[in-house]
Design a protein around this nucleic acid. Structure first.
Lengths: 209, 209, 209, 209
DNA sequence: AATGAATGAGATTTCATTCAT
DNA sequence: AATGAATGAAATCTCATTCAT
């Protein structure tokens, strides 16, 4: 069995390798500007080899996005399910978990931070698109639940929970985008620090005085 | 001279028309996925006609982005230059001015809200890219100045002004992105309300207690 | 209107030109072996130009086959509808009409004579394939009707009309195939003569003694 | 020696197996549309394994066609060489022998019935193509000889022997094509019955009254 | 000023064939 | 003997751009 297992491991590794290379290029250029040629070159494989593992450019793209987003969604659901934990801790955990994707699944995370439903409309088949959207909505719902919990716990002011969750989520994504795209390369990555500061700022704004 | 003037006005109108149509498509699909064919069809003109007014796809794109961003930058500089105005008012004005672009220059605004330096690297010639980046940086500096002023005025806590300006800016952009891309179509546009709520939340977080 | 009309005429001519060139290549090589490049070269156009008029290789192919077959089907229906004409004359007319396609629509005819449902299964969308098949079946039905009429008229022996119509049709197609494919090039084209002789032979075999 | 022999037998069996599978696919799809992948999958072997036994796609194809056609040619020569046998019997035997290929070498037969010189021109090297053509011509000559014999025997009318042999051959091939390609799947295979009826019809037409 | 027609360059995808194991 | 992996070459198709009218 050793051989078959090793084969499978190697295959998995190659798939992961291609996905990593592809994600890097997709991220740098955007889907439309990315060519299979460049992905192949980055992965040091022939174009045809890519097609051994993914049946189309779109398939490759989706194979990067979906699992990462799916994993995150599951994780957030678990985090938000703790009804007793103080709301502030839950909010921080949600943000942390999302941010952790960064270290573990750097490339998928990158793509996610660039997620733009409009662009995908023409790109992905309807079912896949809807699936991604549902995952995004689920993430938002977990944040909303956390804010609602905070109000119920008497910690937060009686704000519009949905609105606040959108704000939190957007601030988070905004920071990522900003740090990734707008800053000069070479500069220190302030992401973690900026995100933490943002969260604390907003939590402070939410607290009952 | 009346005739020449009318001609010029008509020409300007046609240029604006093309830009509006193009911006709508660029926004919906992203630069790479947008075809000149679709722009032409949207503008109800022939492709060749577009080329009478813009010398390339990139040129057309830039002609939409740059003036809007440039105008905004000038406006923010003027707003931030008032050294005496209370900082909170200045922050609100900066955000408002940015948001107002929305009503006046809907499509350019859209494109701006999607601004992604990385994508532009391959798209725009270096000089143009640098120009856009400088405009963005300028906008950020105005916000930074406003926060710094608030600290000087003793209104805000002694926070990292740069960090806070980044946060504010990102939250703003994040909200826009979210509202544009992630929500189901048909839903009410919560943008203004969300942005205002975000700003107030953050201002509250900034205030000395 | 002169200009618009001329334009349309020219466009029609170009479409016909492309179809003719394509049919010649399709015929010579078969669908699979034919490349758009070769069609373009034959038509003295760029590949892209072909795609201005036909949206895919398959579309181009179908646009050649279908109208010719459709026209023939209509014609055979008209011929077979004469209930009083002696059956032998009807049979001869059906064969003649089919053969005449040769002179008028040389290339489409060629493709038809090569028609092979099996090959098309993967090629054409189901609806188109079914349409072609129905046309073929219609043609066969007309021949069957003619044979049946001959029996009713007491001219032909009481044979299996369907079987005989299949035979007649096959002989006809067989002769075409043979003459087209199996003979050395440069040899005289015996098609017409061979077909006529075949029909007479079979009619003689059918007649009541 | 037993071992070596068994090895050889096994090898032959594997070769035959591949040929059978390949022939089925070639027949269903045509040469151009057939992929080595599909052949391999049908044969439940790896693509590379196919190349252990055949040095190219074309080689595999030819290896199916040629022996079958060659065997048939030899058989028809033998059949036609009987100068004394009544011509009608000889004609029937020729047709039968050809038809028998069906049961014994189903797949090669299929391919033969689709034989199209034009397609092969680009496919096969000149020598191989010429060889196939010569085999086909030989078969035709045997039929021609049989018809000529019938005239000499005073059984047939003084027809153009070559023409009639072409007709007979074509009818035969036409019936096969028809039955294979044009009929709805699932229907009874009328081939044998149709062919016999065709031959009898033509013989009747040939006979002196 | 405007357009229909055309195209070169390049994109995605396929496939016969080879090679290391 | 057999195979999984890999690839070069070529196929279909797209698109920004130009040109004749």
């Amino acid at each position: 069995m050793g051989i078959a297992e090793r084969r499978q491991r190697e295959k998995d590794a190659r798939i992961k390798h291609i996905q990593n290379c592809a994600a890097a290029v997709f991220y740098k250029k955007g889907y439309g500007e990315t060519t299979m040629d460049e992905i192949a070159k980055t992965a040091e494989l022939s174009k045809a080899a890519i097609y051994l593992y993914f049946k189309s450019k779109e398939d490759l793209y989706y194979s990067i996005i979906e699992p990462a987003l799916s994993r995150l969604a599951r994780r957030l659901i678990r985090i938000a399910s703790d009804r007793r934990e103080p709301a502030e801790a839950t909010v921080r955990k949600i943000i942390s978990a999302t941010n952790e994707l960064y270290e573990k699944d750097y490339d998928a995370y990158h793509l996610l931070s660039r997620y733009s439903a409009a662009e995908y409309v023409k790109l992905l088949p309807k079912a896949k698109l809807e699936h991604l959207k549902e995952l995004m909505r689920s993430n938002l719902r977990q944040m909303e639940a956390a804010v609602r919990k905070g109000i119920a716990q008497g910690i937060f002011e009686a704000v519009d929970a949905r609105l606040i969750s959108v704000i939190l989520w957007n601030c988070f994504m905004g920071v990522i985008q900003y740090q990734e795209n707008r800053m000069e390369p070479g500069k220190t990555d302030y992401r973690k620090k900026t995100i933490d500061a943002t969260v604390e700022l907003i939590l402070k704004g939410l607290r009952k005085l």
